[in-house]
Design a protein around this nucleic acid. Structure first.
Lengths: 202, 202
DNA sequence: TAAAATGTTGACCGTTTCGGTTATTTGTGA
DNA sequence: TCACAAATAACCGAAACGGTCAACATTTTA
């Protein structure tokens, strides 16, 4: 159903896809209108139907696209599980942000898709490719030993998860990726310095 | 225009108000429909117009209500500026969460209202009562001196701001207020222990 | 360069939903 | 039982919805 769309130039595909992702993410499936998407993408409403057939197919295409995009972004590049905990967190964060830079609307679209409940969308699923990603961040015994108080390790991990959410919000609002990431890198260094035993500091 | 509404029982007022706040927050002014709100509140659409006259008046009432609610929640209870930094952060967070407990939809409504751009709403303003609140959290010189590395203080402050955002998200998703707050209290204690000079620890 | 094929869209369709009104029903206190 | 107010079902014209199609550009082909 999407052959017509896939024949378009990549630039045009990106513009239309981003418009659709943003619109569905903001308004949800039912309240997002094809007209809004078309205007936002700078094309006519009829073209959207030309490319995707109907609303439902457009939405399904976006789900599939996001699934594939997430796989490509996270699954292939293996996180080395043998590095330092803070380094792992840093590496994973960079990956996440690089992905957000390339495709700024995917994150909020996925969030909105997971809470979507329109009856028309029964059977339309978003396969979660994130598990591997989080697994790599999990705390290992050798991580804990580096902490002055090993019992702090778990809570630091939880704190970094919450911090990640806060950063994600900030990134969606003001898109100053590099500024935020620089700040985050400083935070990780600071935490390492204050929480690790001296022998584990460089 | 809202006399009819204010004559209702407090319980019914709360139900209707929460339905409206949630609906406007989720969909924005234009895409939120009176019918949705009425169904969600368990009353008829005609009643909503009976109580508020029209859509615009309902929205204005919610803005005014939120402004008053924020004032009551933050402005009256003075944060003591002479306590420890982490204690100040903790106290402010408790206030914020208590307010979210009582009125879970205010936060997201205010966020959505600040980015609202419907032409019909020109002149409808939300007076920000948060300034005092943030002032109390600002870092003072005597806070910095307690840190092993005083230069860390500023970054810890920034980190706590981001952490607060992440926590806010979590609170809106799963409403396990006490669990999250207990975790946050532990985080603050842990940070204090690891960042403060020994002489400032209890 | 003329014709054929393709890409794009303005105008339109029937239907639904919108904000808002009105006439009727329902509940209540005297 | 009756008067009165609260609540709503039914309704209104207008707008927006998803979707279609014929007409207009643009490109490809002969």
């Amino acid at each position: 159903m999407t052959e017509k769309f896939l024949a378009l130039s990549m630039e045009k595909q990106t513009i239309i896809r981003n418009a659709a992702l943003a619109c569905f993410a903001k308004h949800g499936y039912e309240k997002a209108s094809i007209n809004d998407i078309a205007v936002s993408a700078g094309i006519s409403k009829a073209s959207v139907f030309q490319y995707f057939g109907n609303k439902r197919s457009l939405y399904q295409y976006l789900l599939d696209y996001c699934t594939a995009q997430m796989k490509e972004a996270y699954d292939t590049s293996a996180l080395d599980l043998n590095t330092d905990f803070f380094d792992r967190v840093w590496k994973a964060s960079v990956m996440k942000v690089e992905n957000m830079k390339k495709n700024p609307h995917i994150a909020s679209f996925i969030v909105s898709a997971t809470v979507e409940s329109a009856p028309e969308l029964k059977g339309a699923v978003l396969s979660p490719a994130n598990t591997k990603f989080v697994e790599a961040l999990v705390l290992h015994e050798e991580d804990r030993e580096k902490f002055k108080r090993p019992e702090d390790a778990k809570l630091v991990f939880r704190m970094l998860m919450l911090l990640g959410r806060g950063m994600g919000d900030q990134l969606e609002d003001e898109a100053d990726y590099d500024g935020i990431m620089k700040e985050f890198e400083e935070i990780l260094h600071m935490l390492k310095y204050n929480f690790y035993k001296e022998e584990y500091l460089p």
